[in-house]
Write a protein that binds this DNA or RNA. Structure first.
Lengths: 129, 129
DNA sequence: CAGAATCCTCCGGGATACTG
DNA sequence: CAGTATCCCGGAGGATTCTG
């Protein structure tokens, strides 16, 4: 796969990129069912576990924990435990995590700009067959 | 999930978006293992089935067919059969499909800009535990 | 409140064989 | 060349139960 067309001006494809494609890595990172939802929920500011639980409708405790761990592991958010009773844990995006807002915005723009044509194409395609 | 923060200037969250989140739709569309790879391979211009097969290293015939069908169904590429012997089939991105280059570029930029910090965070995190 | 542990299901996707 | 048709497996992710 040739990434040259997509690279920032003045940057070239390094050998490392051929080994481990950064675009695929990123899609693996945010391509799952919940990661993007959690990131978007955290954009306005820090949130607690239960708040995220309510915000990400349909998520299970297991997957929320799993998703948060993954983001924490990659340094995209911080996890702060307040030693109170009952416990209080706050999640907050780091700079890299919040920087995801840019690409996600682009993706959303593409979506709203083309979703009508996509839906139309899909309906037409299914009408045949 | 509140998408307002990510919307184009002057656009607001419609009821339809709450029903069927366009961001999630898009991630479902491109979040699988091969779609983005195929799209990137097609950016320079039309390609034949076997060319894509060679370009998308590791893909199976089954999945290439499946991926191409999905993109065709949504009107993101066209499939042109030349009635020759042996058969020749060309795939080409449509305007909406090619427009994915923008968001993908943003995603790639984010990736190259932050992959070092992500990798470092991951290593540090795993060193603990 | 914020999880950890366990069990189970579904399906994305690979391997292989066959064909117009 | 460009597929279709089967079979099959691993892992993402849900449901449930238990705890500091």
């Amino acid at each position: 796969m040739d990434l040259a067309l997509l690279l920032p001006a003045g940057m070239s494809v390094t050998p490392a990129m051929k080994e481990r494609c950064p675009l695929r890595d990123t899609l693996d990172r945010i391509g799952d069912r919940w990661t993007v939802i959690v990131v978007v929920l955290l954009l306005p500011g820090p949130r607690r576990f239960t708040e995220l639980m309510r915000g990400a409708e349909g998520i299970s405790q297991r997957m929320l924990t799993h998703t948060l761990r993954g983001l924490e592991r990659d340094g995209l958010l911080t996890r702060t435990v307040h030693a109170t009773v009952p416990p209080k844990v706050e999640y907050d995006l780091t700079a890299p995590g919040r920087a995801l807002a840019g690409p996600l915005t682009e993706l959303l723009h593409w979506s709203v700009r083309h979703q009508e044509s996509v839906l139309a194409a899909r309906t037409a395609y299914d009408a045949d067959v």
